[in-house]
Design a protein around this nucleic acid. Structure first.
Length: 109
DNA sequence: GCTCTGACTATTC
DNA sequence: CGAATAGCCAGAG
């Protein structure tokens, strides 16, 4: 995927990895960052905030299976539409991602 | 080129 | 389980 030419290779890598996540699957920020050789979980989120426009940002969740801050409702709509496995939770959002089933890794098995 | 901020993570209380 | 603390990286001012 070389259509994501941006500020640097870091952003390009993030966009590419996120774009490769299949529908109904999710990746944690840490895993996305680790996939292209960096540990900047926060940096990944920052790229999403600036370049999230046009990207499946809802497929990228926090380590505990929780959706991004302030976007719990938005993300949930996408999960429901794509059939992403969710679980009931006591979390503020009222739900959490079923990581054991929804978690995805970049390399296609 | 330095400083502040942030869609994060892990540890500890 | 929830709140607080520290550590991490990259982008914007």
């Amino acid at each position: 995927m070389a259509v994501f030419e941006r500020s640097g290779d870091y952003t390009e890598a993030v966009l590419e990895v996120v774009a490769r996540i299949p529908a109904g699957r999710v990746m944690t920020y840490g895993d996305v960052a680790w996939t292209f050789g960096r540990a900047g979980a926060r940096a990944v989120g920052m790229v999403m905030r600036y370049h999230g426009s046009g990207l499946p940002w809802w497929r990228v969740v926090k380590a505990g299976g929780h959706p991004p801050s302030g976007l719990e409702a938005e993300a949930r709509a996408h999960y429901d539409a794509e059939g992403t496995p969710l679980l009931p939770s006591d979390s503020p959002a009222g739900y959490r991602i079923d990581l054991p089933r929804a978690l995805w890794t970049h390399p296609d098995p």
